[in-house]
Design a protein around this nucleic acid. Structure first.
Lengths: 216, 216, 216, 216
DNA sequence: CATGAATGAGTTTTCATTCAT
DNA sequence: TATGAATGAAAACTCATTCAT
C-alpha cells in the first residue's frame, strides 16, 4: 500500500470526491453492502481509477476510515476541552462542540462507529491495521484531555483517578447516545435545540463531583 | 410469512443447529459476509432446508436475530438486579451476571448489536420489524430495573432521578466496554478473571453516590 | 413404463385426482413451468405417490396428455359428424359440438394443443412416443369423418377430393381460432352465444361448395 | 427498462450473437427449458453480459421475441401479396415466399409461435407486453393484404367479404400446416421441393373462387 | 493514464427426486 | 404402501476486478 502511495500520482480533486462519496456509501450500507460501482458513479469517477488508487475495496474502506478520522480531527478544536477550570463548563463545552461536529459530519461519525465492528469482517490482513488505527483514536484521547483539568481539582483519597476518567467516558457515551436519539427524532435540529442535553451534561458532572446521596 | 410457518413443519433439532450456526456466522461475518451454504454445512443440513424453513437469506437473518434475543432473554434472571438494598452490590451483581451472559452467549450479543446497524441494509420490508424489535430491548429495561433500588435511597434535592438513571446507563456502557476490551485481550478468560472490572463497577457506584470531590 | 403399469396397483380415485389436476396445471403453466408439488397439493396426494405411479415428471406429462385425449374422445359423439346429408348442416353441428366440448374441457384442449409443441422439449425418449400418439389423433380423423359425406355429393371433375378435405380442415382450424378468440373475450359465454360463429361456419361451407365468384 | 437501455451501451455484434443464439435456444427448448449459460456459451459471451444487457432471463426472452419479429418483418416483402391481379397466383407467390422465409428463419417462426403460448407462463409484468406485441402481428395483417385484391374481383352478393377473408386465413393456416409437416419429414428440403404444396395452394384458391360442386 | 465494458467466480435460489418413517 | 421432509444438482443472478481501447 505504501508502495502504491508513492508510485501512483493522484488527482486531489478526484481523491476528495471519492472519499466523500465512499464515506457516504459506507456509512449508509456498510462495507459488504456498498458497491464500488456506486461510489464511482456518485464521485463522477471511473471504477478503474478507484482500483488504481486504492488497489481494492478493502483498502478503499481503510482509506475512507482514515479520511473520516483525519477530517474530524482536523476540525476538532481541543481548546474547548482544556481552556476551563470548571469541569462542568468544560464538559458542557465539549458536548456542545461534539454535537456541532456530529451535526456537520454525520457520515464520518457513522463510518467511524462501524469501522471497529466491521473489523472482524474485513479481509483478514486488514483486521490488525484497522484495529490498531482505531485504538489510537477515541477513548485514549478523551482521558488525556480530561487529565489536566483533574489535576486542578482536589480529589477524595479513596477515589482513583482512573475511575473518574472511566466514569466520565461512560458519561460522554451516554450523552452521545442521547444526542443520537434526539437527532433521529429531530433530523433538522440545530445546535440550540440541544440545550436540554447540555443541561443534562452539567447535571451529570455535578453528580459525579458531589455524589447524589444526601450528606448525613 | 406466518402462513408459511404453519405450513412447513420444522425439525426442532435442525432449527437449533441452523440457528446456532447462523448466529455464529452472522456474528462473525455480518449479514452480507455470511454465506448460507456455510451455515448449512456447519449445521450439517442441506442448503435446501434453509430456504424451505426461512424462505430466503433475509428471513433467516431476522429469525436469527429473534433467536438471539429470545435466547438471552430466556436465561436472563432479572432478580439479580432487584434483590439488593445496596446499590454498589447490585451493580456488581448485575455486572457479574452480564459478564457471565456475555461469556456464555458472545455471538448473541454480537448479532444483537449488529442488527440495528444492518437494518438499513436489509431488504426493505424487514427494516421496520428489526427496528421495532430492537427498540423493545435495550435501555428502557435498565432504567426500570434501577428504579426500585433508587426508591429506597435518600437522594439530594438538587439531583433529578433521571440524571442518575442516565449516568448509571453510561456507567453500565462503560463497564460493558471494559468487559469487551478485556475479552478481546483474553479470549479464554473465565468469570473470576473479571474481578478487577467488578471492583471498578463498585468504585463507580461509590463515586456516583458520594461524588469524587473532597468535602471542604 | 409398461413394466410399472403392471407392477404397481393404483388407487383409481387418486389417479383421477392426479390427472385432473395435472391437466389443469400443465394447461396453465406448460411442462417446464408446472411443479409436481403443486399437482400433488391440489390433488390432495403425496408427492411420493406421483413418482411411484408415474416414475417421473415426463411420464406424468405423457399420461396427462393421454388422459386428456381419452377424456375428450370418450365424450365425443362422432355421429354428429356423420348423420347428415347436408354438408353445411354437418359442419354447423360439428362446430356446435366442438364448442360444447371446448367449453366443457378447456384444459384438455389446451394440453393437447401444447403437447405437440412441447414434444421437442420433453426428455428425448418420449419425443417419439408423444409425436406418434399425437399423429393418431387430429387431422387424420377429421378427414375420415368428412369422407362419407363427400361421397354423397357431386364434385367437380377438376377438383381433387384431398383438396376439399384439406380446405375443410383449414376451415375447421379457422373456426377453432374464432372460437378461441371469442372465448377469451367472453370467458363466461354459453353455447347460444356462439351462434354467430356457427353462422359463419355455414357461410364457409356455402362458399366452399359454390365458390365466391359471380357466375359469369 | 427503457431507462436501463440508455444507460448501458451495447456492443452490436454481441447483441447479434446473443440474439441469434437465444433465438436458437428458445426455439428448441422453450422459455423454461433454455439456460442462460448455454446462450452465453454459444454466443461466446460471458453470462454476466446477458444480465448486464437484459436484466434477467424474462427480459432476454422478450427481447428475443421482438428480435425474431423485427427480423422477419424486415425481410418480408409484402409486394408479393399485392402485385397480383390473379388471386391464385397471389396466394401461390405468398406461399412460396412464406416457405422461403420459414426455410431461412425457422427459429424465428418457432419462437414467435411459442411466444403467445408462453405468455401465461412468463413473469407477470411481461404478460401484457408480449400479448400486445403479438396482437400487432399475425392475422390482422393477412386480412389487410388480401383486401385490395378482393376489391378487384366480382363477388357474389350472398357472400360476405369477411367470410372470404376468414376462409383464406384458414387456408393459409392449412398450407402452413402442410409446409410444417413436409419440413419435418424432409429437413433438408429446398424451395423447389415444395412445388406440390404450392400446387395445392392454387387448387384451394380455385375451389374458393368457383366452389367444388358441379354446376347443375 | 483513464475508462467502463466485460468477465466469471461466487452466491442465492429452485425443484425433481429420494428415502426414512 | 404412502408420506412429505430432506436433499443437492442445476439454474439464475451479483459484483469485485481486469484490461483492451
Amino acid at each position: 500500500m505504501t508502495e502504491k502511495d508513492t508510485k501512483i500520482p493522484k488527482d486531489p480533486e478526484k481523491i476528495t470526491r471519492i472519499m466523500t462519496n465512499a464515506l457516504d456509501e459506507f456509512a449508509h450500507h456498510g462495507y459488504r453492502g456498498t458497491k464500488t460501482a456506486n461510489i464511482a458513479d456518485k464521485a463522477a469517477v471511473s471504477k478503474g481509477i478507484i482500483f488504481r488508487y486504492y488497489g481494492n475495496k478493502a483498502h478503499l474502506y481503510l482509506a475512507t476510515v482514515k479520511y473520516a478520522t483525519d477530517h474530524i480531527m482536523a476540525v476538532a478544536d481541543y481548546r474547548v476541552w482544556q481552556d476551563s477550570q470548571d469541569l462542568g463548563e468544560m464538559i458542557a463545552n465539549a458536548t456542545k462542540y461534539k454535537i456541532q461536529l456530529q451535526l456537520k459530519y454525520p457520515e464520518e461519525f457513522k463510518v467511524l462507529l462501524d469501522a471497529y465492528a466491521e473489523v472482524g469482517d474485513a479481509p483478514a490482513p486488514l483486521k490488525h491495521e484497522i484495529a490498531q488505527f482505531y485504538a489510537q483514536q477515541t477513548s485514549g484521547n478523551i482521558k488525556a484531555l480530561i487529565a489536566p483539568v483533574l489535576d486542578r481539582l482536589a480529589i477524595r483519597d479513596d477515589v482513583s483517578r482512573e475511575s473518574i476518567q472511566n466514569l466520565m467516558m461512560g458519561m460522554m457515551t451516554q450523552i452521545g447516545a442521547e444526542t443520537k436519539a434526539f437527532m433521529q427524532k429531530h433530523p433538522q435540529a440545530s445546535l440550540t435545540d440541544f440545550d436540554t442535553i447540555i443541561k443534562h451534561a452539567k447535571q451529570y458532572v455535578t453528580i459525579l463531583e458531589h455524589g447524589f446521596l444526601k450528606k448525613s
